[in-house]
């Protein structure tokens, strides 16, 4: 569409939810996909971390000639390095995922970057429809497949939602051939994160749906029917004591309070 634009997609090392294995992160890959559809292989894909990380080749396998890596140790704060780099190098659009699959996974990276650069941030976008005269037409993803049309002036940061076009297949050959350009970069230790302790998440107990079905058809319906949110009550105009009582009753009913 506009190949003279400088579009940067930021990528991280993802983690498969079942195997825990490193992979290309789903949202970041969508950011690369969106960038590639806007700028072909002129899109610049940027990673702050280790250039020797083989997983980066899964992004490269989407058809990138090269991938730039700001060399950082695992203890470093990637956001600082990325912010410094983007402040130095002209970029028109910076695309990120909404939230990383590994590490802190706080979803703060796009906010911190936008703040640092002083650019607008558009969260959870589904598509960039067009970029003309320094202004982008963007579709923001809302729940239930709704979209909000947004206009924003360049440059800006956008986080790419899962509703965006799914990333193209990664091919082994181009991935292997792509150049991983390693750029030595100043490291800022992440003092906050150094104090974190990581532990596997505990599985939360899930309430089982009681299905009083006698026929296969009923069971099928129960398994596939969308929850209608029945049983809820809207309490708006009652006095606060009544409202509190209603909440209390619900908590008792749900077994939260005993």
């Amino acid at each position: 569409m506009t190949s003279d634009l400088n579009i940067v997609a930021l990528v991280s090392i993802g983690q498969h939810p079942k195997s825990g294995r490193a992979r290309r992160a789903e949202q970041d890959a969508r950011a690369v996909e969106l960038g590639m559809r806007l700028a072909g292989d002129n899109v610049q894909v940027l990673h702050a971390g280790d250039a020797a990380e083989e997983t980066l080749r899964q992004y490269a396998g989407m058809g990138l000639k090269s991938l730039r890596v700001l060399q950082q140790s695992p203890q470093a704060d990637a956001v600082v390095a990325l912010g410094d780099y983007l402040a130095e190098h002209r970029a028109d659009v910076v695309l990120t995922g909404v939230r990383a699959e590994s590490g802190e996974s706080s979803g703060m990276a796009p906010y911190l970057l936008a703040e640092k650069l002083g650019w607008p941030l558009v969260t959870r976008i589904a598509d960039i429809v067009s970029i003309e005269n320094g202004e982008a037409q963007i579709l923001q993803a809302l729940p239930r497949g709704q979209r909000r049309a947004i206009q924003v002036r360049l440059p800006f940061v956008a986080s790419v939602d899962m509703a965006a076009q799914v990333a193209r297949q990664s091919a082994f050959g181009p991935g292997r051939r792509a150049e991983l350009e390693s750029l030595p970069w100043v490291e800022t230790p992440d003092s906050e994160r150094a104090q974190f302790k990581e532990a596997p998440a505990r599985k939360r107990p899930k309430r089982l749906k009681k299905v009083k079905a006698t026929t296969a058809a009923e069971r099928f319906k129960a398994a596939t029917a969308k929850s209608q949110g029945t049983g809820g009550r809207i309490i708006k105009d009652q006095p606060p004591t009544e409202q509190a009582q209603a909440i209390f009753d619900l908590l008792l009913e749900e077994g939260v309070l005993r």
Binding site: M62, G63, R168, S170
Partner: peptide
Amino acid sequence: TMEKGNTPNKG
């Protein structure tokens, strides 16, 4: 598959 990344459908 390995050069074009073009395995159809669920591939």
